[in-house]
Design a protein around this nucleic acid. Sequence first.
DNA 1: TCATTAAATTGTT
DNA 2: AACAATTTAATGA
Length: 242
Amino acid sequence: MAATAPELSLHQRRRAPTPAELAGIPWLRVLQPAEYGRAIGDISVGDALPGDLVCRMGRPVTYWFGVIEGLLKMSMDNAQGQTMTFTGVPPGGWFGEGTALKREAYRYNIQALRKSVVAGLPVDTFHWLLDHSIGFNRFVMNQLNERLGQFIAAREIDRMNNPDLRVARSLAALFNPVLYPGVGEVLRITQQELAYLVGLSRQRVNEALTALQAQATIRVEYGGLRILDLDALRSSVLPKPL
DNA sequence: TCATTAAATTGTT
DNA sequence: AACAATTTAATGA
C-alpha cells in the first residue's frame, strides 16, 4: 500500500497510560500478573477531538480500542451510501474484537462525538492474550455475546417509529453495564449528542427525556442523564396521552 | 475562597 | 432555527 488517504487526521500522538486510565480498563482485572505486565506495557492512549475518526471502515485492524473517557459513535455506511449509526460508545467500552480476531479490515467507522481519551491494544498483543489468558478469553467471549444482543436490538430500534421509544431503547443500550462498565449511575452525554446518535432533533430528544423523567425512569441533569430504572428503559411502552 | 465573566447546555417557541 | 434561562468552567483579586 503506497500513498494512504490523506484525509485521515487521526491524532495518533500516543502516550503511555496513566494509572487512573488503567483503572478504567475493565479487562485488565481478569489477567494474571505476567499477562497484566505485558498488556499494560503495550497499551497506548491518545486523545480524539470531536469529529476525529478513531478507525475507518476498510482499514486494516491495528488496535483493539477502548474508551477511557468521552463518547464515540459507531456507524456503518451501507451500499447505498447512507450512514447507519449503530450505537454510541461511552467510557469502559471496547470494540473491534470481532475484526481483530480475524485480522480483517474494520467494518464500521468510529468517530469521536466529543473530546475523548481512547486506549489501544496492538492486535498482536490482543492475540497473545487470547493464546495465554483464560480470563481474557472469557472477557472477549462475553463481550461478543453481549454485543450481538446490542446489534439485534439496534435493528429493532431502527425500525421504531415512536421517537420516545427510540430514545429510551438507545439510552438503555448506553447504560449496558457489561459492555460499558465505565458508565455508572450517570451517563455523561448532552442532549445534542444523544440526538445525533438516535437521529432525531434535539428538541424531540428533549421532549422524550422529559417524558422519561416524568415516569421516574431517568433524571435529566446538566450535561448528563441519571438512570433510575434500567428495566423500564429497556422494556416500557410509554403511555400515549389521548 | 469568592466574585465576575465566558462558555456550554438546556428549555421553549 | 432562534432565543432566553440556567449551569458549569475559567479567571483573577
